[in-house]
């Protein structure tokens, strides 16, 4: 990290032996690059759309699974499957699911339901959301298992006492279960935010030629950094962009810890 910090102020290029100190040139360059700004905004969009969806859905599913007594292990296993499957394989399966007719399964379902077909990954409006959906599907398994573990640590006495006092199911959920899960929720929100901020593999495999397209509409920061570093060999510029990503992760994590911790106090 220290090396990368130092390199972000140089014009280090893998193809040349000389390294010069260039001050803030790299930062000026990336912040005037519209592709970088687009990638920065896309990265934030991945977090905004992805994190709340995955947390809410996994909490909901975990609470439902917690009520099931028979075959709970089977459902738990089913939900974890996407998470333990290699990401590249998952990405390609989804890429094919999203294809236009005649190949894409999702579009064929839409056709059979007499609904208009969708462009999904070929559309500048839908591509990012399509990748978010895939990622949420992958991350669900992990979050559900953690939430389930959390739910099972809540002493049943609390729930029983509330029930005797005449609390409704909804009240038990909102007044007991959710507040007691706060530390676990905080942990998952931070972990998920970091994983969405670092999104790469799905985008690389689901966009044409790993370009983060169409028209850069899905390109996240990590892909931008990768292209600068390993396609253009411009390590200095890539280091500067990494530093921006590092700052972004730190700021977002800090805000979340402060915000969610205050609420639980």
């Amino acid at each position: 990290m220290v090396f990368s910090l130092a390199m972000s102020f140089t014009d280090w290029n893998l193809l040349s032996k000389d390294v010069h100190f260039t001050g803030f040139d790299n930062f000026v360059k990336i912040f005037s690059d519209e592709v970088f700004l687009k990638a920065l905004w896309n990265t934030i969009k991945y977090v905004i759309f992805g994190v709340p969806s995955v947390i809410l859905l996994s909490l909901l599913i975990a609470m439902m699974l917690n009520r099931i007594r028979k075959f709970q292990w089977l459902f738990r296993l089913l939900y974890v499957m996407p998470y333990i499957t290699p990401l590249v394989a998952v990405s390609w399966v989804w890429r094919w699911l999203y294809q236009p007719p005649p190949m894409g399964v999702l579009n064929n379902i839409l056709l059979n339901l007499n609904m208009p077909t969708q462009q999904f990954l070929s559309s500048t409006e839908q591509a990012l959301i399509s990748i978010v959906v895939t990622t949420v599907w992958i991350q669900l398994g992990y979050c559900i298992v953690i939430f389930l573990a959390g739910l099972q640590t809540i002493p049943s006495e609390y729930i029983e006492a509330a029930r005797i006092d005449g609390a409704s199911r909804r009240q038990i959920t909102w007044k007991i279960t959710v507040p007691l899960l706060k530390p676990i929720t905080l942990f998952l929100v931070i972990m998920q935010s970091i994983s969405f901020l670092r999104i790469f593999t799905q985008v690389y495999n689901m966009s044409v030629q790993g370009s983060g397209g169409p028209l850069n509409s899905t390109k996240p920061l990590v892909l931008y950094i990768y292209e600068k570093a390993f396609v253009n060999f411009d390590m200095g510029l890539a280091s500067s962009a990494s530093l921006v990503l590092f700052g972004l992760i730190m700021v977002i994590t800090f805000i979340q810890m402060k915000f969610l911790n205050e609420k639980s106090d």
Binding site: S122, S123, T124, V208, P214, L215, N216, E227, V231, N232
Partner: peptide, 20 residues
């Protein structure tokens, strides 16, 4: 000079007319 970048220039031009 940079085949990937130059390829993307034309891919993007087509996308801009076709998609946008």
């Amino acid at each position: 000079a940079d085949e990937k970048a130059q390829r993307e220039v034309l891919m993007n031009a087509i996308d801009e007319v076709y998609l946008k």
